[in-house]
Design a binder for these strands. Structure first.
Length: 160
DNA sequence: GCCAACGTTGGC
DNA sequence: GCCAACGTTGGC
């Protein structure tokens, strides 16, 4: 039986890497995650084909701006080996790279970005992880019904 | 710019 | 193993 597709949310600061950057690049390695829980999601739980809500954080307004797809299995984050990278980690070695990532591929930019305020205002999204106070995981799972609802909000019918 | 919440580090 | 101090995240 095929593995069930999972849904995720990945945060990026648009000043660092935005949905437009992903659209331009087509796909990218999700570099720089230096949190074990977030790494574990990428390393242990993500599968090729999983769908991702692309979230802009630390910007005005924060929110989900588009969709992406996981397009690789986990592999070492090479930036950990690069002494000139902001993501350098002296403890990372080729035997034990410590940090791993997946590649993600651009799917779409929402015609209607779903701001954090919109997410909070929608009763169907109650309990969504990203809305929890103090939640700062940059890679986090999303429940299927939450995922579908956000996609609806981002692609409104009968508008535009 | 502020600051609450969180994760990590390191002394003990 | 505890926990205070510190650095970071990220909404506001």
């Amino acid at each position: 039986m095929a593995a069930k597709r999972r849904y995720w949310l990945m945060k990026s600061e648009p000043d660092v890497y935005s949905i437009d950057d992903l659209q331009r690049d087509g796909s990218t390695s999700w570099e720089g995650v230096r949190n074990y829980q977030a790494r574990n999601f990428m390393r242990d739980d993500m599968r090729e084909g999983d769908l991702v809500l692309f979230y802009h954080s630390n910007t005005k307004p924060p929110g989900v701006v588009g969709l992406a797809r996981v397009c690789s299995s986990a592999h070492p984050d090479e930036t950990a080996f690069d002494a000139n990278s902001p993501y350098y980690d002296a403890k990372a070695t080729s035997e034990n790279p410590i940090w791993q990532l997946v590649d993600v591929q651009f799917i779409s930019k929402f015609p209607h970005p779903v701001g954090r305020e919109d997410l909070k205002a929608d009763s169907a999204l109650e309990g969504m992880l990203v809305l929890k106070k103090g939640m700062r995981l940059s890679v986090q799972p999303v429940e299927p019904h939450h995922f579908e609802r956000v996609v609806e909000l981002g692609n409104p019918r009968g508008k535009n």
